[in-house]
Design a protein around this nucleic acid. Structure first.
Length: 757
DNA sequence: GATTAGGTTTTG
């Protein structure tokens, strides 16, 4: 049966066959017997006709219908999804529009697959068009859509209320309490409203569900009440929610957008609502009761005052089971000295307020008793509205009686005078002026973050461990800011060392080839000793024309130790500066190197002198060993030239041998930390200046390696807590490197040195 | 189709 149309809603009722019984949507369950039931409801949403792949491409349409007769309405499940299949889907799409009233019968009741998501109704109705029964009554008026249904609500002016009737009203809120637990089973919201008639009407709303209570932020908000029962109480009219009730609230700021606030998934809201809200706003703006109470800032607070405060939460701390401390600000400076409630830093949640405290910007609010439930859930950064906050003078526990008292703030227990607090959504029009004031303090926030360390340092740590040596005076940034910055960049940070690598500091010594940029660890002695052992095995002393050789047999049979000196050098002052040595162990060359300036270990291959594998040092010079780069060293040893050098050092030796000298470098990776973030920074190009130690000297000196360890122990004392570690003023270089074709941002500590006494 | 509260004179 196709969709049938009627002209009047009452005609619909006449169409109900006698064997069918009207049923309410709310009462539908999976076990309802549908065959003798029908529902009547308004189409609040009509989807497009779609083709359902899972059902062989059959066409289907989803509509949401809502119980129309207010008498049938309860708070829950007044709407339900209806799925039309096949030709009925197309038929319904053409015949019905949003706002139309429909009468449906012979549907199938199925479990709603979307209930968890849309919370509409546990069931859905399905209609496939065979025996189904669909009547549509177009909504009144030329226009369709949401506005068409609003004609069904009439709003009674507050001076026209008659006792014991159920009404819909609009009003401006002149007083309200946040919902509080009643002595019965529900939460109770108590409010007073007024309208252009200037009559004030009290209103109580009871509901077990907090989210069903009106969302009120401040006096002057506008509220729409549907289905409230009137009665007379103490000679004036009062309102109480009754079955099918609902509330929607609006901000009262004139010229701000009219945005309905409700937890309800579906509600009537149209042009006439917008008009009504705007008219009430306009009227209320000129009323004296909506006074400047709303706009009390910290700068205006006088001792003894009760006032409403709009502010931002900076930090919080639980004081005891009946009291929570909230540290807040509104960006204005109080004229009276503000009390600072001292709290252990580990008990405080949120940012430090040290700098704002100093500037008399932080209000310490003690929140008591029933308000803890709300206060506990608040997160620092949240915007807050306090109601009936009490400013009072107090002496801090450690204050002398002759000192001036400081202003503290108490949110007393109970709900008298609407006492309470709640968070405000960041987009709330009531917050716009607060936010613009706070934005003027952006620098302060930054300053605060980095300078809290200054105080901690004065209290907890010895004098500065490092100094910056850079000339530039770039801004000091928090680590979080540094991470957000775009390289290349130089900046200053104040941070502590959380961790560093390598923990075994001798491992920070690296070999670096400036030619191919290879970096490697210094080979350990066992690897070097092995190269020596293998080179000495079964070898006959080499015999080079250019060299003068002397040999001696070692303790081990078959191993000969030979020393070679270039004939070119004989007769020159340099002749004892460079000696080639063959057939020794690592230990032996170490002993010999105490007496000879430059010893080059060599081996013999077919009687020709050859350098050892470059895993081993190519040069021993006193305490130091020098390595060559395996990749970049040229083999020019065949015809070495030893003339024209006055003083042999590692550079000259490397050049004469065709070796690419590897440099010693020190590399440490720090994990820096400040109040905002952590960041991994390398100490690399600046390491020698940082420690006042040269890498090559450190390579041969246990004393210098100990010095580096001692310095590291001062900037990150072993087993220290974070608070015990000194703050370091560091210069950071932010740069990017190509890593597998991707740009990777790196950080290096530059221009910073350890301070030496 | 009950009951709750029905602004309040606060206070650590």
């Amino acid at each position: 049966m196709p969709v049938q149309k009627v002209n009047d809603s009452s005609d619909l009722d006449a169409k109900v066959p006698s064997h069918l019984q009207r049923t309410s949507i709310t009462s539908l369950t999976m076990t309802s017997e549908p065959s003798h039931r029908c529902v009547k409801a308004t189409v609040v949403h009509k989807g497009p006709v779609i083709s359902c792949a899972q059902k062989d491409g059959i066409e289907m349409l989803r509509a949401e219908i809502k119980e129309e007769d207010p008498l049938q309405r309860t708070a829950e499940h007044t709407s339900i999804n209806v799925i039309f299949f096949g030709t009925l889907a197309k038929d319904f799409s053409q015949s019905a529009r949003q706002g139309d009233v429909v009468l449906l019968a012979d549907f199938t009741i199925k479990k709603s697959p979307s209930f968890l998501r849309d919370k509409l109704h546990p069931c859905q109705l399905e209609m496939d068009g065979k025996d189904d029964f669909v009547y549509v009554c177009p909504s009144a008026g030329p226009s369709h859509g949401p506005s068409s249904s609003e004609a069904k609500y009439t709003y009674v002016p507050l001076n026209d209320l008659k006792p014991r009737t159920v009404v819909n009203v609009y009003g401006v809120v002149t007083f309200f309490k946040q919902p509080f637990p009643s002595k019965g089973s529900d939460y109770c919201s108590t409010l007073k409203i007024t309208d252009q008639s200037d009559v004030k009407v009290g209103c109580n709303i009871f509901s077990k569900k907090l989210e069903d209570h009106p969302i009120l932020f401040r006096v002057g908000d506008i509220i729409r009440l549907h289905r409230f029962k009137t009665d007379v109480f103490r000679d004036s009219m009062s309102l109480l929610n009754t079955f099918g009730w609902s509330t929607v609230t609006f901000d009262g700021t004139t010229d701000s957008p009219v945005v309905p606030r409700t937890s309800s998934k579906s509600f009537h809201f149209g042009e006439s609502d917008i008009r009504t809200v705007q008219e009430l706003r306009q009227w209320a703006a000129n009323q004296s009761w909506i006074s400047n109470d709303l706009k009390v800032s910290l700068s205006m607070v006088k001792p003894g005052m009760y006032f409403d405060l709009t502010c931002q939460l900076l930090a919080k701390a639980v004081m005891d089971s009946r009291c929570i401390l909230l540290k807040v600000w509104d960006g204005t400076k109080c004229q009276h000295p503000l009390l600072n409630v001292a709290v252990a830093s580990d008990a405080l949640e949120g940012e430090s307020t040290v700098v704002k405290d100093r500037m008399n910007l932080t209000a310490n609010v003690l929140v008591y008793d029933n308000h803890l439930e709300v206060a506990r859930e608040l997160k620092p950064g949240t915007f807050l509205q306090f109601y009936n906050l009490h400013a009072l003078l107090q002496r801090a526990p450690d204050q002398q009686p002759d000192q001036s008292e400081h202003l503290s703030f108490h949110l007393h227990g109970g709900t008298s005078y609407g006492r309470g607090l709640r968070s405000l959504p960041a987009e709330s029009p009531a917050l716009q002026s607060l936010k613009s004031v706070l934005e003027k303090h952006v620098d302060l926030v930054e300053y605060d973050e980095v300078n809290d360390g200054t105080l901690l340092e004065i209290w907890y740590t010895p004098p500065e461990a490092v100094v910056r040596t850079c000339e530039h005076n770039t801004r000091r940034l928090t680590l979080a800011r540094v991470k957000r910055s775009t390289p290349p960049l130089s900046c200053h940070v104040r941070a502590r060392v959380k961790k560093y690598k390598p923990q075994q500091l001798y491992q920070c010594l690296k070999l670096f080839c400036s030619n191919c940029k290879t970096m490697e660890d210094v080979p350990d002695d066992s690897a070097v000793a092995k190269v020596f052992r293998e080179s000495a095995k079964d070898s006959q002393p080499c015999d080079e024309q250019w060299a003068a050789t002397s040999s001696a047999s070692s303790r081990e049979p078959g191993r000969t130790i030979s020393m070679h000196i270039s004939r070119d050098m004989v007769g020159e002052s340099t002749h004892m500066q460079l000696i080639f040595i063959e057939g020794t162990t690592l230990d032996e060359i170490c002993v010999l190197s105490r007496d000879y300036k430059n010893l080059v270990p060599v081996r013999s291959v077919n009687s020709r002198m050859t350098l050892m594998d470059l895993t081993a040092p190519f040069l021993f010079s006193g305490d130091k060993r020098y390595y060559g780069c395996k990749k970049c060293s040229l083999n020019t040893f065949q015809n070495p030239v030893f003339t024209g050098v006055e003083t042999w050092d590692e550079q000259a030796v490397a050049k004469a041998l065709g070796v690419q000298l590897m440099q010693y470098r020190l590399l440490i990776q720090f994990e820096l930390e400040d109040q905002t973030d952590t960041l991994e920074a390398l100490l690399w190009e600046n390491t020698e200046r940082f420690f006042h130690v040269s890498a090559v000297d450190a390579s041969g000196s246990q004393d210098l390696q100990d010095k580096i360890q001692t310095i590291m122990d001062t900037i990150q004392p072993p087993d220290s807590s974070l608070e015990e570690r000194p703050w370091l003023d560091l210069c950071l270089s932010v740069y990017s490197v190509k890593d597998d074709d991707r740009n990777k941002v790196c950080y290096q500590i530059t221009n910073t040195e350890i301070k030496e006494e």
